[in-house]
Amino acid sequence: MESDHIKLLSATATGDQQAFAKLYQSTSGRLYAVCLQLLQRKDLAEEAMQEAYVRVWHNACDYHSDKGSVIVWMVSIARYRALDILRSAAHKRERGGLDHEESSDHTPEVSLFDSRERARIDECMDTLDEAQRQTIQLAYFRGLTHSELCAHTGSPLGSIKSWIRRGLQTLKRCLER
């Protein structure tokens, strides 16, 4: 899979539209899941997808293996686009309104991350305290800010910041062991 992706991305970097179409076919399911999980709305997730793939097309030559596998690099691009959309004032969710989207485009994908495949990082996530793991997962999969995490967990800001900082330090030690 990864070697196929590298070939398709290399061809994309030379302007090969068919290779780009195949790369889209092979990766769009993963990227859409990331956008949908974060944005919780199909229309916004589709907007993020468009921006992400336009960026992949223009920046294909910037990829190198230090940035991870091709799919992880593409997930990074899609997730930053989705976070930008999430943070933009027009679409900002009501604080604490996690499960009360009123849009007709609301999608019942709230807990897509519960059924994900276990990745190497999950073994390390298991070593975190419950509070650390929960705040990092909510920030990663739902894009919650510090203040939204306070509202969601009912915990003070100092605790939230500390859980995230210490959780990430523990993750790093575990992942680079």
Partner: peptide, 30 residues
């Protein structure tokens, strides 16, 4: 890049969801 590799492995492990065909058409148009 190191943190993108670490954390975005979480996103890459999500179960796939297929976007509507119109997304690809819109990308082509753009």
């Amino acid at each position: 890049w190191r943190w993108e590799r670490h954390l975005n492995a979480l996103g890459a492990a999500l179960p796939e969801r297929q976007p509507a065909p119109t997304v690809w058409h819109a990308i082509q148009r753009r």
